[in-house]
């Protein structure tokens, strides 16, 4: 029963694989919940900041802020691409890289010189593979990104944007709409697009003045966009990994069903054959 033993081995191996993928699914689920909590926890800050900037902003002021400067011609643009350090997350990184390719192609069409800043091993690996130089790359941003991480990523760019060395900054990340919807998104973070004001401008006492406050808050706003991108990307990654592992577990289950059926059929066939042989042998003796 050589075939039977072979099948038994495969059943065992698929069972073990399913155990691993199921564990990974559960790990990703709990990590996703925590990452999701962080996305939710980051919202009040972002909302308050957006609201205040919307309240203080007036078009007349825009001219005086380097971070709101609308360059006449964009010559150089920085692209921050967020990917994950680990794989086993289905098309998560592939989608982000595709979004990056689309953006880079669009920039090339507009004769803009792009400058790539890549976060995460998967993105770095891809650009090394296609032989494209990146301006900076980092892999040390963990599953719990901090405001400090965001600051490290973008502070230099804010400064260079201020001194007109670069004319635009994009960030590519997977937006976390819900656990099931994490579309890759490219977002323009610099120049700052002033958020729309809801309702009339409240008559604030300003200390010291709208101009000074905005000068202080705009870098905060840019940093926060990057922080949110980091946090949402992480949540997106965990949910993609969860989905991928769930699919793997389900597929392993289906595979097991087929294998078990084949194994049982082979065993039954053998038993049937043995009985036939015995019956045949007995009737030969009688006859």
């Amino acid at each position: 029963m050589a075939k039977g033993r072979e099948l038994k081995g495969r059943i065992k191996s698929v069972e073990n694989t399913r155990k691993i993928t199921r564990t990974m699914e559960m790990v990703a689920t709990s990590k996703m919940k925590r990452a999701q909590d962080r996305v939710v926890a980051a919202r009040p800050f972002a909302n308050s900041l957006t609201e205040v900037i919307a309240n203080l902003y007036t078009p007349e002021l825009a001219e005086s802020f380097p971070l709101m400067r609308q360059p006449a011609a964009i010559k150089k643009a920085a692209v921050i691409l967020l990917t994950s350090n680990r794989g086993l997350a289905g098309a998560f990184n592939a989608n982000l890289l595709k979004e990056a390719r689309i953006l880079l192609a669009r920039l090339a069409e507009q004769k803009v010189e792009p400058e790539l800043h890549v976060v995460g091993k998967k993105g770095i690996g891809y650009f090394r593979y296609i032989g494209r130089a990146v301006a900076s790359s980092r892999t040390d941003i963990t599953g719990q990104p901090t405001v400090a991480n965001a600051a490290e990523l973008v502070d230099g760019l804010i400064q260079r944007f201020g001194s007109a060395e670069i004319d635009a900054v994009y960030v590519i990340y997977s937006k976390f709409n819900s656990a099931l919807s994490t579309p890759p998104t490219s977002q323009l973070v610099l120049p700052v697009t002033p958020p729309e004001r809801k309702g009339p401008q409240p008559d604030y006492i300003l200390m010291p003045s709208a101009e000074v406050i905005l000068t202080q808050l705009l870098p905060l706003y840019v940093r926060n966009s990057i922080y949110r991108a980091l946090v949402e990307n992480e949540a997106g990654f965990q949910s993609a990994q969860r989905t991928a592992m769930k699919n793997a577990t389900d597929n392993a289950g289906e595979m097991l069903n087929v294998l078990r059926r084949t194994f049982n059929r082979a065993r039954q066939a053998q038993i049937t054959q043995e009985i036939a042989e015995i019956v045949g042998g007995a009737s030969a003796l009688q006859g």
Binding site: L56, I205, P208, V212
Partner: peptide, 19 residues
């Protein structure tokens, strides 16, 4: 702690935005 010294807020304060 405002940018230029401490500032106290009580109920009924006028709308204020301070660094």
């Amino acid at each position: 702690p405002a940018y230029d010294g401490e500032i106290g807020i009580l109920t009924g304060h006028a709308p204020l935005m301070a660094l």
